[in-house]
């Protein structure tokens, strides 16, 4: 004979298991069957035990594999990668200075030859 406290725990377990199967996207009969089965398996027990039993049942029925696509494959929200590279464009923000430096370099090369830089 179960005590009042055990009865309360069992009710909590029942409600928890029922709530879980209601939240699952399953056909109504299927969800209720699973809930009943899990409660039968554990008897008067805590929510943790009932939920563990339910999870084991879900696994047995192959309902714990996450969200799958129409072909039963792992759902992906993006297409397969097809990589390319994007290199930042050079933005010469001081073209007048660059031009001046290039002018000096040309002038030096003209005067002393290219080798002098080394």
């Amino acid at each position: 004979m179960t005590s009042i406290r055990d009865t309360d725990r069992w009710r909590i377990s029942r409600d928890r298991v029922l709530l879980y199967v209601r939240a699952l996207n399953l056909p109504p009969y299927k969800g209720l069957d699973l809930a009943v089965e899990s409660l039968k398996r554990t008897g008067p027990s805590s929510a943790a035990e009932s939920m563990e039993s339910l999870r084991a049942l879900l696994k047995e029925h192959g309902l714990d594999r996450g969200v799958l696509d129409s072909e039963g494959k792992h759902l992906a929200s993006v297409p397969p990668l097809n990589r390319s590279v994007m290199v930042p464009e050079e933005l010469d923000r001081v073209p007048w200075r660059t031009s001046f430096v290039q002018f000096l370099r040309r002038w030096k090369n003209d005067l002393f030859g290219k080798g002098c830089a080394r």
């Binding site: 879980y20 939240a23 699952l24 996207n25 996450g66 969200v67 792992h74 759902l75 992906a76 929200s77």
Partner: peptide, 13 residues
């Protein structure tokens, strides 16, 4: 965290 369907979707993605 709580909703099993949303949880499954999130972890799958």
């Amino acid at each position: 965290v709580t909703d099993p369907c949303v949880h499954a979707l999130h972890t799958s993605l």
